[in-house]
Amino acid sequence: FTDPSPINDLKAKYIGMTSVILTWLVNNTASNSYRIEFGNSASMDSLTSNRTEVEIAKLIPGTMYNFTVFAIVNGNETGGVSLSLYTKPSPVLHLEAEYVGVTSVNLTWEVNDTASDSYTYRIEVVNDSFIRSLTSDVTKKEIPELLPGMMYNFTVFAVAADNETEGEGRSKVLYMKPSPVLHLKAEYIGVTSVNLTWEVNDTASDSYTYRIEVVNDPSIGNLTSTVTKAEITELLPGTMYNFTVFAVAADNETEGEGRSKDLYTSKS
Rank of each mutant, 00 (worst) to 15 (best):
I189P: 01
N50V: 10
P61K: 01
L223V: 03
P178A: 00
S225M: 05
N242P: 05
V173N: 14
Y152W: 05
E110I: 04
D117W: 11
I72P: 04
I60Y: 04
K229T: 14
S205I: 00
R259S: 15
A249V: 02
V100L: 04
N8E: 13
T139I: 08
A230Y: 03
V214E: 13
S179I: 01
A249F: 00
V111D: 13
T197S: 10
A57G: 15
A250D: 05
I72G: 09
T18Q: 11
E55H: 07
I189A: 10
S49K: 02
I21G: 02
N127P: 00
S193G: 06
V215L: 09
S207N: 08
A30V: 05
L147Q: 13
V81P: 02
R35P: 07
E199G: 04
F154R: 05
K13V: 12
E145L: 13
L263I: 13
T203K: 15
S82N: 08
M150E: 13
R259D: 06
V191Q: 12
L182Q: 12
Y34F: 15
T203L: 12
P4Q: 11
M151C: 10
V138Q: 08
T139Q: 15
L146Y: 02
N40G: 03
T63K: 06
Y14E: 15
E145M: 10
I72W: 00
N222T: 14
E55L: 09
N8K: 12
E96F: 12
A42N: 13
S33A: 13
G16T: 00
I21Y: 07
V248C: 03
G16D: 00
L107D: 05
A30I: 07
S225D: 03
T165Y: 10
I232V: 14
T265S: 09
L263Q: 09
E124A: 09
N153W: 04
E199D: 14
N163E: 13
E55I: 09
D202N: 00
L95M: 08
S118K: 12
V105F: 05
I60G: 03
A250W: 00
T78E: 06
Y99C: 02
T114Q: 12
S90K: 02
T209Q: 10
V200I: 06
I60S: 13
F130I: 10
G101K: 08
S171R: 14
D206I: 11
Y208I: 07
Y264S: 11
V156F: 06
M17W: 01
S104A: 13
P4T: 10
M240L: 08
G167V: 01
K11S: 13
N106C: 07
P148H: 07
D128Y: 09
G62L: 04
V191H: 10
L10R: 04
D262L: 15
E199C: 02
V200L: 12
I131T: 15
P148A: 07
A42Q: 13
A161V: 01
F38Y: 15
W198F: 03
G258V: 03
S49H: 01
R122G: 01
T63D: 08
S49C: 11
G169Q: 03
K267G: 09
N216F: 06
T165F: 07
D137T: 12
V73C: 05
A204Q: 06
H94A: 14
H183I: 02
A160E: 03
S90G: 02
I189M: 05
L59Y: 02
